[in-house]
Design a protein around this nucleic acid. Sequence first.
DNA 1: TCTGGGGTCCTAGGACCC
DNA 2: TCTGGGGTCCTAGGACCC
Length: 349
Amino acid sequence: MIVLFVDFDYFFAQVEEILNPSLKGKPVVVCVYSGRTKDSGAVATSNYEARKLGIKAGMPIIKAKEIGKDAIFLPMRKEVYQQVSRRVMNIISGYGDKLEIASIDEAYLDITRRVKDFDEAKELARRLKAEVLKKERLRVTVGIGPNKVVAKIIADMNKPDGLGIIYPEEVKDFLHNLDISKVPGVGKITEEILRKAGINRLGDVVNKSGELVNLVGKSKANYLLSLANNTYHDPVESREITHRGRYVTLPENTRDLNRILPSLKRSIEEAYSKVDGIPMEIYVVAIMEDLDIMSKGKSFKFGVSQDRALSVAQELLNKILESDKRKLRRVGVRLGKITKSSTLEDFLH
DNA sequence: TCTGGGGTCCTAGGACCC
DNA sequence: TCTGGGGTCCTAGGACCC
């Protein structure tokens, strides 16, 4: 298998640069404003000039402004980036047989049948990068490997505007010596668990295979072991979005239904406008004042109309408020099991 | 410093059934 | 006093990713 992973460099900020070239060379910060106060919200992404100053994704806007007074702060324009993303994905898809879109700015491509070896794969990647640059003026980083995970890791190590490749004969050493924090799926919590058990490199899991399930659970243990033993062969497969959510920050932290319901209603309307079909699962998601996340949901044997969803969501919200004393900071709704039709009316007839 | 708004997959207990 | 062995579905929450 030969897999190519494509990562769009600092995507949202790069699109803003493309649309307004005078931004190039300056620190650019794309922000999600929550609307609470003038500068409340968080950084979605920043270009490399801003990263040099220390402005990174997830950082509060207030703090980013402190450390980068002269940086350019722009509001996120998701629809614009989504359109660019669709066009770029379309170009990429022409270079392989299967495209797996992992997010708005990442995709895996199976090129096994398009090239005879890894050197040809490298040539193909160069052409892909050149076409994306020429047609969309967008710079991307490409990783090439014998499976999805290796391709992603080597892309991460070659950002920005890079091309990284791991040849089949290099894979075993590469994976064995890889620091566990570099493995996709190993976050802060798993990293700490593994380090405490003396596992610092991916190769270390092989000797600890007995205790691994107890440390990280069956599925993550199998995942890490298959990687380390180089038997990981997850196929590149196109994916459908399974859930659609919409969440909004409340004007202030509260438990007052009169202040929560308008936001909940808006979330439902906007979530429904995003789905092509009718959901059979409704969840209310509440982010509490301390940013802890709670959710209550309900699934149905039939599709739930938007009107019905509003009353279902109110019941679920009440359950949350009954089961917890904290104030809510954000609230939203998540729709799942989206089918084409089949509402309650269809179900009864 | 005071914290957006999306997503995915997995776990675990209880209900329920054979 | 001892009381099987599965299986699936539902629900809530955890960890991770961008």
